[in-house]
Design a protein around this nucleic acid. Structure first.
Lengths: 124, 124
DNA sequence: AAGATTCTACTACATCCGTAGAAGGCGCCA
DNA sequence: TGGCGCCTTCTACGGATGTAGTAGAATCTT
């Protein structure tokens, strides 16, 4: 289940609170994304076809609900990135993050801390 | 500079060793990617247009060289993922990784260790 | 030097993606 | 009851992407 960029916008809005109507989704899109209402509808329809979302009618209005969890979608996206850009392994990503000045020491420390504690929990 | 999936394959092969000819790139594509020679050429041409790669002629054969470093491309991809799927912040990614059972404790520990040491180096 | 091999440039084409307009249906308000 | 406004479904369309064929030029091979 690969989402396109535009579809991510929709899903992000939908995950925020659902079920939701197309108009609600529209209102929750980030400022700067000024799509026509029908654009949202088109995207939602495509997402329904893709089985990423369900559609239910209430009176004459469709109400949408995510079928794919945010966690799952994130995992897919993360894996794809790993496969595509980091040889499919966490090692190279780690390396990259370590090299990367773009992230603050604080961010890195936080990441490290959480991962560390997680690792402890599971015991090696 | 956004690379498409197919383009990543080419770039990955090119970063491995360069300059390289189209045929060399072809030979280095992962098993399972069995594209026609002309497909590779098309992709390389598009990458040249995008200025992600340079092309130089040696006799009648083109030799290609990446113009965009792997590090840079990775950063772009990583940032895109962050923006698209993780609210543009490292925090949610951290959370996600922590939740995610998909990664072994070992991987997490490694990630943690490297990030930790990096953070130390820079001092907070 | 002729045939085989390999390149290159160009063209092609189906599908996907972003983005939306048009036209018709339904409920609400004056 | 005639609009007004919102909803729906269908259709569209240009540009990006994946994937490759063709034809002619250059080069190697014997």
């Amino acid at each position: 289940m690969k989402l396109t960029e535009a579809e991510w916008q929709i899903m992000n809005a939908l995950w925020q609170k659902h079920p939701a109507t197309a108009r609600e989704v529209m209102d929750r899109l980030p400022a700067g994304v000024n799509w026509a209402y029908t654009t949202i509808k088109t995207l939602l329809t495509r997402l329904v076809e893709k089985k990423a979302v369900t559609e239910a009618k209430h009176a004459n209005t469709s109400v949408y609900e995510p079928l794919v969890s945010q966690q799952k979608a994130r995992l897919n996206a993360f894996r794809s990135l790993l496969d595509q850009a980091f040889d499919g392994a966490i090692g190279p990503l780690v390396h990259f993050l370590a090299e990367e000045k773009q992230f603050t020491a604080k961010e890195k420390k936080e990441l490290a801390r959480i991962l560390e504690s997680e690792a402890e929990d599971k015991g090696e």
